[in-house]
Design a protein around this nucleic acid. Sequence first.
DNA 1: TTGTTTACTTAGGAGAGTACGA
DNA 2: TCGTACTCTCCTAAGTAAACAA
Length: 588
Amino acid sequence: MVLKCCPFHPALTRLLPFFIMLLFVRWEEEKYEDGVKWKFLEHNGPYFPPEYQPLPDNVNFFYKGEKVKLSPAAEEVAVFFAQMLDHEYTTKKVFRENFFKDWRKEMTPEEKSLIKDLEKCDFREIHAMHKAKVEARKSMSKEEKQVIKEANQKIVEEYGYCLLDHHRERIGNFKIEPPGLFRGRGEHPKQGMLKKRIQPEDVIINCSKDSRTPIPPAGHHWKEVRHDNTVTWLASWTENIQGSIKYIMLNANSKLKGEKDWEKYEVARKLKSCVDSIRNQYLLDLKSKEMVKRQRAVALYFIDKLALRAGNEKEEGETADTVGCCSLRVEHITLHNQLDGNEWVVEFDFLGKDSIRYYNKVPVIKKVFKNVNLFMENKEPGDELFDRLNTNLLNKHLSSLMPGLTAKVFRTYNASITLQQQLKELTNKSDNVAEKLLSYNRANRAVAILCNHQRAPPKTFEQSMANLQAKIDARKEQLALAKTELKQAKKEAKSKGNSDPKLQTLVERKKAAVKRCEEQLLKMEVQATDREENKQIALGTSKLNYLDPRISVAWCKNMDVPIEKIYNKTQREKFAWAIDMTEADFEF
DNA sequence: TTGTTTACTTAGGAGAGTACGA
DNA sequence: TCGTACTCTCCTAAGTAAACAA
């Protein structure tokens, strides 16, 4: 099939099998024995943020209106707070309390005994200095910006790459996270706490034995240097807020990540072939005598139909109160026998990952409805809906149905299959590229809605919408005028018996003007619709994480749409494997 | 069986960079 | 040419899930 539509020179055509083999090798070369991720790994270690620079003498902190010279450690933390003063969260009680508590830990005994009330602290000079710095950076000349850019380039060149099994690979996040005040998402109980500066003594380096070990910054040493080739990370450290481990890993365009991504979509495609029998099974399980099975079946029904996340249990008080499917509580569900003309409606209202609200009213089958009703009986609002179920149990069951199957595979599968269906339904080969792209975005949007990928409406949204509307109105007026002029021209031409060539040309010109106006108006109206529909929806997340790129590549090939129209440079790099290997007839 | 640790993917926001229209 | 609006990149938090420990 490659050959039959191949546009290459015959000599190249003969070489094609070789190229294909090369591609194959590039993406699927030497699978190592189980768990081994690499044989050779060399890098220069992470890049550390610059040391703290104390405030100049003319910038001061005040307590109860008195100038106070803070010790460097206390001053640095004060600066973190001062920099955030424009943000709403510095007004939040939890944030302020956490900050003040951690700030006091950095103070000298004298400072501690003096500074006892955050309300009496005046950070305004520090804040002003910070704002001035930001302003100065913005108004730098082209040349100054160029100098900074080149310095950054140099850092990337030195720390941004590693050598992994003969390939020079980009590192995703080669910089150690700088210290600052922690801002979790949503109502995070730890917001405002001090995120401490990471020292080389906190960092574990991972590289191969026979590589050049990264050299720690002068006067420092690493916490540990290990040689574990069953993991993909190059360096790690433990963060002080949650005590979780942070990793330095490869960029998404690396071979290792690419292979993993490809595998993910292959598992989802495998689900396609057995999803019917899995669905039949959980529908049967809805009637099971065992409560565990019925709960499992209902949870699976939600995960499959609504693309809910698994919902691991989390430690209370450590993070914002969010849930997924298995951790849903009674208070997140309202049942309606009848609602808006539908029977058996389940109303969901809960905060999911990143404290993004999930709100949905879903008509379900009667058996599911009755089961949920049963699960809720004799429970308090704060009780778990699925009290016999957890993600571990659910995934154990799933992997027994299909190797590699877990709850999150359903999200990938349903997202990708939805994109493929929507693209088929919405696009016509005869459309122009703009129309095809609108269809693509609509298909993408359908997936984003399914997965509940939201964003905050852009701050300038109302304004920019109003601007666009003003433009539309102006264009409408212009169109009305053009139409009147056309009418007038026609009338004049007719009065001359349609015989004056000059008047005929004028009529044609006016007709063209009307047409142009109508087209522009339509384009703007489409744009307005698109923007309005996209107000609170983020398309990027599904594109990057849930949609098999081969669907999009094949669609581009079929529709003669350049791949650059749907994937930007980073996305093309990440999906290079798909762009290389996908034919127009690819089916998810 | 249950809790803990680890490794990895998924996520939205901020700010930098770029394009586009007045 | 400038300002504004949109896009992209970076950042790092917040999930999932498997391995391991008790």
